[in-house]
Design a protein around this nucleic acid. Structure first.
Lengths: 205, 205
DNA sequence: TAATGAAGTGGACAATTGTCCGCTAATGGG
DNA sequence: CCCATTAGCGGACAATTGTCCACTTCATTA
């Protein structure tokens, strides 16, 4: 098990200065294009053209559109993760694991909502959809919360793994988009629905 | 509201005999190709080549890969629908709407499992993913069951629309595939997980 | 500073999906 | 039976994603 994830935080060996600049440049251009015409309506080819780099260069920096989109909201995602890490083990403020689970879901729904266009466009090649790095991170947290709630007796014994995926499926960006834009649901409605099913519903009787 | 759905059952005006034959021929060829190399690994172009028809012809018969895949399992889908219609309002054999909901989910999981490859390959252009004809059909049935259960007091008051989508999301083909093939879950495990969340969980206390 | 080799770059190419449109031929009315 | 209408056909084309690889440039080191 090597830690070979390409976290740009830990420059395994090195990254050329010009490459870093180029990467930032691409991000800036993509951000503008996505804002102007929408992320869905913008092709990778277009981004490369606008940034005046070859396709190869673009794809060297971002393996696919989902990575590009992800990179554009990296800060908000990290902020979300920081917020979650902040309360996820804070049993003083939130004695109930279920309460923390509810908070988690709530935060996730709001995060999704605030970057819907990018998250839908960057749906990713379905094989990364269930266990891309970010989804894996969320999955892991859900498992921890569910197990804690179960051990505390707040939750009747259940299949934590299956349940975690069910939770993530119910709030995945594509469905969220459909509910918000086609069906006109509000975030509150989504959160309330989630709470009813996965918090109240699963609570031990 | 015109009834303009292209149900090949009701030949609105006419369909040329040779076209019908051609369609059947394409289906036969696609069936073999899909069986041989897998539906995912077979492109529409390849199907057209193998069937010795132009791309235009192929797309005239099947607007996209999802329609082609769907057509290949039409019979099983219709059998599923018939089975469901058979018990969905049968309050004699199944007095409890929740029991019928459980049956519905069970049947759906097994149907999905028996045509996983085709259903995953024919994922369809995500805009049809939540309300393609078949999904709409399932959605409608779920709404009916949930409302009946609610009115009967089996279910605490809840957001039936949101819940129906959550149920469908939790058993969508892509996730099912991932759970079965990457995670090694059995159908029984999936069904049990669903029952715990959406039957036992939502049952009125 | 010059050489070296790895990181980075560009754009041609391949693969795929889906559309367009001029041509062909089945069908049905006269 | 013949012709006009129009469904149906074929395949070129456009759009997009992603890969490949020969070439370039930076950065280290001797």
């Amino acid at each position: 098990m090597t830690t070979e994830h390409e976290l740009e935080e830990s420059p395994k060996r090195r990254e050329r200065r010009d490459a870093r600049a180029n990467r930032q440049h691409i991000l800036a251009v993509a951000k503008r294009l996505f804002a102007d015409q929408g992320a869905e309506a913008t092709s990778m080819y277009e981004v490369a053209q606008a940034a005046k780099v070859g396709q190869g260069t673009l794809y060297r920096h971002f393996a696919d559109k989902s990575e590009l989109c992800h990179a554009l909201i990296k800060e908000d995602i990290q902020a979300f993760q920081a917020r979650v890490d902040d309360f996820i083990n804070d049993r003083e403020r939130y004695p109930s694991a279920l309460q923390r689970l509810e908070l988690f879901i709530s935060e996730k729904v709001l995060l999704t909502d605030s970057h819907l266009s990018l998250l839908v466009a960057g749906g990713g090649p379905q094989h990364k959809r269930f266990r891309g790095p970010f989804n894996q991170w969320m999955y892991d947290r859900l498992i921890l919360l569910l197990e804690e709630a179960m051990e505390a007796g707040e939750l009747a014994p259940l299949d934590v793994n299956f349940t975690a995926d069910a939770i993530l499926a119910a709030i995945m960006p594509h469905l969220h988009y459909y509910q918000r834009h086609e069906l006109g649901y509000s975030c509150e409605r989504i959160i309330a629905g989630m709470r009813h099913i996965f918090i109240e519903g699963l609570r031990a009787k």
